[in-house]
């Protein structure tokens, strides 16, 4: 359980995190969303005990991060932004070091290091110095370091930032694997929205240090004006005026010189059958017909743009 209560952090005049409160329960994979500079990293730095908050409090599994810092830190694995590691150490030595700091010893330590190495497929680079590794491998070393002691709470600051699509896929797979344990809490910060749909059970959107939205990815998608919209791909451009008259239709957008038509639905309305029926009656040559779940990036933009305005 993570409890964040009125957390505030100022850097001089600038308020980086402004009275932020929320809770994360075991079993949740929380996506922490926001534009750059929204206060995501600052919040994570306060959660992990690196920065002291200027106001409010946070606790990890019942341990207050300010007064019981070491106990709270024992519950957590943390991947800082950019996955900093001691570059002159070898991968194996580095993981052994982290395991020792985490108080693991003997057979226990060997087992945990082996498990993390296996989960992140680091077998091939164990004896290389970290400085010589590629970005993807460095990130994996950072992740291995974070999961080494099998923590109850995992906090990952932009775990896939700067990775190639294959590596992103791998890291997401790993996060899902870790989150399959229902007693764990995973918090990831990101500005990549597909990631939220892919791995998170809950998303929190912040901008300028303030909470803007909190819900499941589905709920967030439902706030999109594209929620339940129907998109048609057509052979020839058609006259779309009649579509507006259909029940529940709130608007029509035409793209690609009339070859792509998106019919927007009023909130709560289901328009797919009516639009399909209309297309058949008019004998439009439809190549593709699909219903949209909503566009997270559009929700994200409208939420955070309102805030900026």
């Amino acid at each position: 359980m993570i409890k964040i209560n009125s957390l505030t952090k100022r850097f001089g005049e600038h308020v980086a995190v402004d009275n932020l409160s929320f809770e994360v329960r075991p079993g949740e994979v929380l996506g922490f969303l926001g534009p750059n500079g929204a206060g995501k990293s600052t919040t994570m730095k306060m959660l992990t005990g690196f920065l002291a908050p200027d106001g409010g409090s946070a606790s990890i599994c019942g341990f207050d991060i300010r007064t019981q810092t070491l106990q709270a830190q024992r519950q957590m694995g943390y991947l800082p932004e950019g996955a900093p590691c001691y570059g002159d150490m070898r991968v194996k030595g580095f993981l052994e070091f982290i395991a020792q700091v985490r108080g693991l010893s003997g057979a226990d330590r060997r087992r945990q290091v082996d498990r993390a190495v296996e989960q992140l497929q680091l077998q091939g680079v164990l004896h290389q110095t970290i400085d010589t590794l590629s970005k993807g491998f460095k990130r994996r070393v950072g992740l291995a370091q974070a999961i080494l002691h099998d923590p109850r709470v995992l906090i990952l600051d932009e775990p896939t930032d700067g990775l190639d699509p294959n590596q992103k896929h791998q890291v997401r797979g790993l996060i899902q694997q870790l989150a399959s344990d229902s007693n764990k809490i995973v918090v990831i910060s990101t500005h990549i929205l597909e990631e939220v749909s892919a791995v998170c059970t809950r998303a929190v959107v912040i901008a300028r240090g303030r909470l803007l939205a909190d819900g499941t990815p589905d709920e967030l998608e439902a706030r999109s004006r594209y929620h339940q919209a129907v998109t048609l791909l057509l052979q020839q451009p058609v006259d779309t005026a009649a579509l507006l008259a259909l029940p529940g239709v709130s608007g029509v957008e035409v793209a690609r010189e009339g070859h792509e038509v998106t019919v927007l639905a009023e909130p709560g309305a289901v328009i797919f059958p009516a639009v399909g029926e209309h297309a058949r009656q008019q004998q439009w040559q439809v190549k593709e017909l699909s219903v949209e779940r909503g566009r997270l990036d559009e929700v994200f933009r409208s939420l955070t743009a309102e805030e900026a305005a």
Binding site: K45, Q73, Y78, I98, V101, R102
Partner: peptide
């Protein structure tokens, strides 16, 4: 410089 201070200071070390 390398940012490892964040790693070090979030490990349970006094």
């Amino acid at each position: 410089k390398s940012g490892t201070i964040e790693l070090l200071m979030t490990l349970p070390v006094s």
